[in-house]
Design a protein around this nucleic acid. Structure first.
Length: 653
RNA sequence: GCCGGCGUAGCUCAGUGGUAGAGCAGCGGUUUUGUAAACCGCUGGUCGGGGGUUCGACUCCCUCCGCCGGCUCCA
């Protein structure tokens, strides 16, 4: 079983996260879901705002609960707003069963069961009723009760979920209710003094959610809202949501003709259009060159393999639901690959290796196919066919530490080229059920931690959060608008070397089992591309722009000059087109701006006469005239991977 | 997979049971244009697919597909 299981899960966490605009609250759910009752917020401070995938199973973190006095005023207010919303819903609808209603990263939610199907048209009424309760400035009153009293009260009110939540509260713990007007809720608190403290809120969405997050449980209706301490903050938040929407890679992907998916092709299967394919090619070329520079060899492996291989690897027994049905070839079953590792292992096994040959670093942009449930597919973030930027490192025990450090530094540099400087790491250690000797786990975990310390990457430890086959490091990066993305992963694997009986000959002439590390820097090229589109808001830096320069002749009298220039630029490997349409230059500029082309050259009679170009940059605006040579020098400087764009001047796009 | 919403031209969107519309894009003309949209004309649709109700369905019902927001799954 492959190592990518846990990588897989990280990816899922990310992919599942709300679209921009509904930033980050969902992560909270799982944390609160298992709690005994209407839970107060837990550690929001560990995650920056807009964390989009913090659903992560940080078991270590989960056990940590904030004390009441540490709950921020904002969280307290949001939690109280959830109660007010629950009160409003109880007033407006019949037979409301309450579950829980915690605060989230930017607001709150409350889970209910009621016969009426809530929809967005109900929001106005609910908000109105909430506003009424806020205006009445009703006090929140804390009420302690004995378990018997609490049970009786909940039973009288017919609150079956609350009764179950009550039963979860450990014996000896104080049982508290909060009363606000006629609304009483089993809740640990704390709350604001009175509803008047609630300043600015808005209901945002309604969604189904399983009771206690269990698929077999009934599905409740969850109302989400956002809440802030002032109207102004709420407005700013709503504007940020708008900004995130503008960056949605699915929208930009279509507008900029980068990629599409198509119903008759199948969901989760990506069609790369020429412009998107060009960007992808540039990314992949860069990736390959960097890997070769960094001591990797590149390999290629097939898309399908015999069933026997996947039996040995363990995929068929442990991962089959993620794999597509086999195809029969010459009476033999073949499977489309969900992972690349077994093939890399087979390359290793093609000959005998000595300790002198190690470490081996083999990389592949391997396209894999995995079954994903229909409901979870999302743009490029969650697809059924994708390309891993995969590599496997096979080394001796005394090489692992330097190898891990090397990978860490490699990742840092790669991310920085794409403008991601803010990186955080999560070290996941041995879970209860695990394969591999304890000593190996310990050595591997230590080497991971040392690498993090040496590389100076801030990290948190997720105790027991590793996959059963080995410890791992996951990296998160922060994008241009502050959202976090789970991206790279480095995972030890004590399982596959065992299953495939991997060996090398040591200096003692004996056979030893090598260490194996799986790593992906970008995760999946598709998803990385989607992140990049949102990070750059579609305005790729010069080196990645599918079209770098567009020449805009004023009239057809300048076409010839434009073509000559275009040829010169093309000869220098710049990606150039000429807009020869019968349009005014303003219209040509507008088109180029909307296509987010970095440079526009306006060519009129003056330029032709003097042999100059009038340069306009998509964000810096009019740059004046210069010689073609000067322009090319500038393009070369800016057009290196990671090259700096000119200072941006505010410009409406 | 589950809950809710949505699906009308390439795109964005009007259209509440009685002959399918607009803007943009595209195409053809006119215009020869100086840093974010010239003007005129034309083309373009099984109203996501299938079934049903009805004299008549884009509109109402059922079902399937896809998309969006969540939940779940994620060895």
């Amino acid at each position: 079983m492959c190592p990518w299981g846990s990588w897989f899960s990280c990816r899922r966490n990310v992919a599942q996260t709300p679209r921009p605009g509904k930033t980050g609250e969902r992560g909270k759910q799982r944390k609160t879901g298992g709690n005994s009752f209407d839970a107060p917020p837990e550690i929001t401070t560990l995650r920056p705002r807009c964390t989009r995938h913090s659903t992560a199973r940080w078991k270590g973190l989960q056990s940590f609960r904030m004390n009441d006095d540490k709950v921020s005023a904002l969280d307290r207010m949001r939690h109280s707003t959830a109660h007010v919303m629950a009160a409003a819903v109880s007033h407006l609808f019949e037979h409301v069963q309450l579950d829980i209603g915690p605060s989230t990263d930017d607001g709150f939610y409350y889970d209910f069961d009621l016969p009426h199907r809530l929809n967005t048209e109900d929001f106005a009424r609910i908000e109105e009723e909430m506003a009424r309760l806020v205006k009445a400035n009703l006090p929140f009153e804390r009420v302690e009760m004995s378990r018997a009293e609490a049970e009786q009260m909940l039973r009288e009110r017919g609150q079956k979920f609350k009764l179950e939540r009550l039963a979860d509260i450990p014996a000896g713990e104080t049982i508290t209710f909060y009363r606000c007007g006629d609304f009483v809720d089993l809740c640990r608190g704390p709350h604001v003094e009175s509803t008047g403290a609630i300043k600015a809120f808005k209901l945002t969405s309604v969604a189904g959610s399983y009771y206690r997050g269990k698929e077999t449980n009934p599905m409740l209706q969850r109302l989400y809202g956002v809440a802030f301490l002032s109207e102004k903050e709420l407005r700013v938040h709503l504007m940020q949501i708008e900004e995130a929407k503008k960056r949605d890679h699915r929208k930009l992907g279509r507008e900029l003709e980068l990629f599409t998916t198509e119903e008759t092709v199948g969901p989760g299967l990506v069609l790369w259009h020429p412009k998107g394919a060009r960007v992808r090619l540039l990314i992949e070329d860069f990736w390959r060159r960097e890997h070769l520079k960094n001591g990797y060899e590149l390999v290629y492996t097939p898309h399908i393999g015999r069933g026997h291989l996947w039996e040995t690897s363990g995929h068929l027994s442990f991962y089959r639901e993620g794999m597509y049905a086999p195809m029969k070839i010459d009476e033999e079953e073949y499977f489309v690959k969900p992972m690349n590792c077994p093939f890399h292992i087979k390359i290793y096994q093609a000959k005998k290796w000595s300790y002198r040959d190690l470490p081996l670093r083999w990389a592949e942009l391997g396209t894999v196919y995995r079954y994903e449930k229909a409901g979870v597919l999302a743009g490029l973030f969650r697809v059924r066919g994708f390309t891993q930027d995969d590599a496997h490192i096979i080394c001796t025990p005394d090489q692992i530490e330097s190898e891990i450090l090397r990978v860490m530094q490699f990742a840092k540099r790669m991310w920085s080229v794409f403008g991601f400087e803010d990186i955080k790491a999560y070290l996941a250690t041995r879970p209860e059920k695990a394969v591999g000797e304890a000593a190996r786990w310990e050595q591997a975990t230590k080497s991971l931690e040392h690498a993090l310390q040496t590389a100076g990457v801030p990290y948190e430890v997720d105790l027991g959060g590793g996959a059963f086959y080995g410890p791992k490091i996951d990296l998160k990066v922060r994008d241009a608008i502050g959202r976090e993305w789970q991206v790279s992963t480095f995972q030890f694997d004590f399982n596959l070397p065992e299953r495939f009986k991997l060996v090398y000959t040591g200096s003692d002439g004996q056979e030893h089992q090598p260490y194996m590390v799986h790593r992906a820097l970008f995760g999946s090229i598709e998803r990385f591309f989607g992140i990049l589109v949102e990070h750059y808001a579609g305005a790729f830096p010069l080196w990645l722009a599918p079209e770098q320069v567009r020449l805009l002749p004023l009239t057809e009298k300048q076409h010839e000059f434009a073509q000559t220039l275009a040829q010169q630029l093309g000869a220098e490997d710049f990606r150039v087109t000429v807009d020869e349409r019968n349009e005014k230059v303003g219209a040509k500029i507008r088109a180029a701006q909307l296509e987010k082309i970095p440079y526009m050259l306006i060519l009129g009679p003056k330029e032709v006469e003097q042999g100059l170009v009038s340069v306009r940059h998509r964000s810096a605006g009019d740059q004046g005239v210069m010689t073609p040579a000067a322009l090319m020098e500038r393009l070369r400087a800016e057009g290196r991977p990671g090259g700096q764009p000119p200072p941006a001047k505010v410009q409406a796009t």
